[in-house]
Every structure is written in C-alpha cells, then in structure tokens.
C-alpha cells in the first residue's frame, strides 16, 4: 500500500463511523422511547469517538498539519470515503435499526480483523477498543431486528420493507475497490469473499430468527469509496460543518 492509499484507507474507516455517528445523533431527543434515545445517542458517541481516533491517525500519517477537526469539518462530500449505506436518512425507527444492523455486522467482522492485523499497529489499538463497543451495538441492533420482525403484523411488514430497501446498499461493504484491494493485499483488511460469507451467514441467521426474508437481489449501489455520494450526504455535511466553516479559528 502506498502512503496515499494508506491515508485513503484510514479515511474510509473513519468516515463510515463518523457519518453513521452523525446520522444517529439526529435521533437524540426524538427516539420512540427514552431508553432508545439514550441507546442511539450512546452508539453515536462511540462511533464518533472511533472516527476521532482514526482521523487523528490519518492526519498524523499525512503530515500536512490536518488534525481530526480539519479532516471532519473541512472536507467536502467528494472527499468523504464512507459507504452510501451510512449516509442514508434515518427514515422511521425500523429503517434506522435495519441500517444499523447491516453496518454492525460488517463492523464486527472488520474490527475483528483490524484488531489482529500487524500492518498498522495504531489501527489495531483503535480496533481493539472499538470492537468492545461494537459488540454491544451489534447485540442491540440484532435484538431489535428480531423484536420487530417477529413482532406484530405491522412491525414485521415495515421492517421487511426497510431490509428490502437498504439491501442494495449492503454490497458496497465488500465491493472491489483499488484502495481496499491494496489494504487486503497488505493484510490490513480481511479477505473479501471470506468476510462476505461470514457477513451473509450472521445476517441470514438473525433475519431467519426474526422471521424475515433475506432479499435475493445482487444489484449493488456504490460510489461512496470514490466520493460519489447520494445527495443526502451534502445536506448532512452542511449542517455538521457550518459552524467551524463560519468561524474557522473559534475555540470553545
């Protein structure tokens, strides 16, 4: 992996966590129950914490004086490397849970490998910590999938809709891509087909328990890793970045 690829790879890891964390934080004060409000905000906080560590590391490696804030607040949508899945709007609670479930299962596999790889020891340290947190997130989203799927007729119909709608966005997790291929070749990322199989198995098992149907479609929506995003990301960044961009040197 070249240095530029290394940085890009770190940004892809950091941006997945940052964008999903920012999305989840929109639920703060709006979740269907107080416990859930707290849970979603806690998960958002963990994700943003993970991205801070990864962004700082990317900035240090780059050596151009960009710190975590610079990277988070002063990159445009085209410079963001996150999966399209994590930038999609929250929708209703089921949409948020289905998105979280797909991502958590992916994050578990990815962090498990990242914690063990020796290509980048700083990432291994960040991942070891993140993995402890993501296990809780994954348990939470899987529990909800089962409760909603194996719940009432209405909850089942709605969560199935969420699963079907989000499904085309899950393929991007394992899609071939120059940066990820370089990371896999360096041993920094898990083998693609093995990771995808593990994901398929664990996702399938939960959907099965939730009495939901696993979609068959293989069409993949992609572009996020190259900075080609849905329009939703720009609106989110506008809100997230407006303050530091208006007052770049502000301290509080």
């Amino acid at each position: 992996m070249t240095k530029a690829q290394h940085i890009d790879w770190l940004l892809s890891l950091a941006d997945d966590a940052l964008i999903l964390g920012q999305r989840l934080s929109e639920w703060c004060g709006h979740a269907p129950a107080l416990e859930e409000d707290i849970a979603l905000s806690n998960i958002a906080l963990d994700l943003i914490g993970q991205s801070r560590a990864l962004l700082s590391h990317a900035g240090r490696l780059e050596g151009a004086g960009r710190d975590e804030d610079r990277l988070a607040f002063f990159r445009s949508d085209r410079e963001y490397r996150n999966l399209l899945l994590v930038e999609l709007p929250n929708g209703h609670f089921g949409d948020t849970i289905a998105r979280q479930f797909f991502y958590d299962q992916f994050a578990l596999i990815r962090y498990t490998h990242l914690a063990q790889q020796t290509f980048d020891s700083e990432v291994a340290a960040i991942a070891t910590k993140a993995l402890k947190e993501v296990r809780y997130h994954a348990a939470h989203s899987a529990e909800w999938m089962i409760r909603l799927g194996d719940g009432t007729e209405l909850s089942k119909a709605r969560i199935q809709e969420s699963v079907d709608r989000l499904w085309p966005f899950t393929g991007e997790c394992f899609q071939e891509h120059t940066i990820l291929d370089a990371a896999i070749a360096s041993g920094a990322m898990p083998d693609r087909s093995r990771a995808q199989n593990t994901w398929n198995e664990s996702v399938g098992a939960v959907l099965n328990q939730a009495t939901l149907t696993k979609p068959e479609g293989s069409w993949k929506q992609s572009g996020g890793r190259d900075g080609l995003h849905t329009e939703h990301l720009s609106y989110m960044l506008a809100e997230m970045q407006v303050l530091p961009r208006l007052h770049p040197e502000a301290k509080w």
Partner: peptide
Amino acid sequence: MVSAFGSTACKAH
C-alpha cells in the same frame, strides 16, 4: 436489564 445503554457510555440501565 432495561437497556444495555445507560446514563454514560460506561453504564447499562
């Protein structure tokens, strides 16, 4: 357990 997520990141409810 009411929720695995509590008043701070380190606590469950």
